[in-house]
Amino acid sequence: MSRRILTVDDSPSMRMLLRAALTEQGFTVFEAEDGVDALEKLEAATPDLVITDINMPRMDGFELIEALRTGDVQAGLPILVLTTEASDEKKARARSAGATGWIVKPFDREKLGAAIRRVLH
C-alpha cells in the first residue's frame, strides 16, 4: 500500500512540483495551503508523514509543528521541514519544536525520496 504524505505549502506551484516528484516515486499525496488548513485536513485523514514549509500565512511551519506535537494527533508522526531558510537558528527552533528533519529548497527529488523512505522504514 502506498504511503500517504501531506504536503503543506502556501505556493500552489511548489505543491504541484512536490506532488509530481512524490507521486512518481510511488507516494500518495494530499495537500494543505498553510498550517490551519493542514490541521483541518489532519482531522479527516492521517498521513504517514508531513512535509511542511516554514513561511506561510495564518499559521507558519513552526506553529504547525508545535500544534501537532502538543495536539491530539498520531504520536510520532514524522514531520519534515522543506524551506528556503538555511539558518542554524531556525533549524534549531524546528528541531526543538519536534521536527524530524530539515531540507533546504530547491529540493533534489532523489534526496527527498531517500529521506522519506529512511524516515518511514
Binding site: T84, A86, K91, R95, A99, T100, G101, W102, I103, V104, K105, P106, F107, D108, K111, L112, A114, A115, R118, V119
Partner: peptide
C-alpha cells in the same frame, strides 16, 4: 542554478 548555500541538503534530527 539559483541555490542557497545548502540547497537540497537533508538533515534528519
Amino acid at each position: 542554478k539559483i541555490l542557497p548555500p545548502a540547497s537540497g541538503d537533508v538533515e534528519l534530527f
